[in-house]
């Protein structure tokens, strides 16, 4: 009998499988080589309150085992998103998670306000990688700002709020606890690690924005450690993300305690990677005698309390 891949990510939100794209790495449309409805959820690129063109190019630089990006979250703005994009996303038979970006606490609230009247939204994911307009510090790296932004968003909606955590902090478990206190329903981690590259020929930074976010296989061990830490620190569902490129990577995050996983950079090299991971997880469960995916979530931590 085929193993049951479905997971209850949150009370009332059951996913047909635990695999979804990381925000900004997967578009639904003419470029799809399979029906996005196969995925556990669709996660949109981040939606800002007003149109924003994104950063000046160059925006991309490949590093050893990784990708630096300074795309800068271009967005058509929430009104255009609501009128033009959202109706096309609702047609897929799967959960829909809207990623939300902003430069102030109020901006997150405004995006959510503009979408609250719309049907078919399963959850919001807050992207805190933007620098805060006030002091330029990204929301995701300041516990007080993160608390305020989550609490403010919580006032706007009864829908689940997923907080995407930045790894560019001293104590990511502390950030997760702040998110929980402020009313988050789940956390997703990690966002990209801040990095840069210099062109030695031009003797200038490669990226138009100087700094960028590092993603890809190179960051997976860091992401996995942080997922492990956070899954042990908060009483919230954890979505694991960071460098997942194949079934084995995905299994590591599930075994560490992630209830779902997101695939980002790997989508660029292998457009079929997400369905391949879904099938790969099913095969792993069957080959190892598990009847359902929930049997393996956090399994690597079994007996943790006795480890001393």
């Amino acid at each position: 009998m085929a193993a049951d891949l479905s997971v209850e990510l949150l009370p009332g939100l059951r996913l047909k499988n635990p695999v979804m794209p990381a925000s900004g790495t997967y578009e639904c449309g003419s470029a799809n080589v399979y029906n996005p409805g196969q995925l556990g959820a669709i996660v949109t690129k981040s939606v800002a309150p007003v149109p924003w063109p994104g950063n000046a190019p160059p925006r991309l630089h490949e590093t050893t085992g990784g990708l630096l990006n300074a795309v800068g979250i271009p967005s058509e703005g929430v009104v255009a998103f609501r009128e033009k994009v959202l109706p096309t996303l609702r047609q897929y038979d799967t959960a829909l998670i809207i990623s939300v970006a902003g430069e102030t606490t109020e901006e997150f609230a405004r995006v959510i306000q503009a979408l609250e009247g719309e049907a078919g939204i399963s959850a919001y994911e807050l992207n805190f990688s933007c620098p805060n307009l006030g002091d330029g510090i990204p929301f995701g790296t300041n516990p007080d700002l993160l608390y305020q932004a989550v609490a403010r968003a919580r006032q706007e909606t009864k829908r689940p709020i997923i907080v995407k955590l930045s790894p560019n902090v001293t104590d990511i478990a502390l950030m997760a606890r702040e998110a929980q206190k402020a009313g988050a329903s789940a956390v997703a981690l990690i966002n990209t690690l801040t990095g840069m590259a210099i062109d030695v020929r031009r003797r200038r930074p490669v990226l138009g924005n100087t700094f960028g976010g590092l993603s890809g296989p190179a960051i997976k061990p860091v992401a996995l450690r942080m997922v492990w830490e956070v899954a042990g620190a908060v009483d919230l569902p954890v979505i694991g993300v960071g460098g997942i490129s194949n079934t084995s990577d995905a299994l590591e995050f599930l075994l560490a305690g992630a209830r779902a996983i997101q695939v980002g950079t790997a989508n660029f090299a292998n457009p079929l990677v997400m369905p391949q991971i879904i099938n790969g997880i099913a095969s792993y469960l069957e080959e190892n005698g598990f009847s359902k995916i929930t049997d393996i979530i956090g399994l690597a931590r079994k007996g943790e309390e006795d480890w001393g």
């Binding site: 900004g24 690129k45 990006n69 660029f268």
Partner: peptide, 13 residues
């Protein structure tokens, strides 16, 4: 320079 070549990454503007 491109990451996906299919419009998803918004990197090649």
């Amino acid at each position: 320079h491109m990451a996906c070549g299919t419009g998803a990454c918004k990197g090649c503007v």
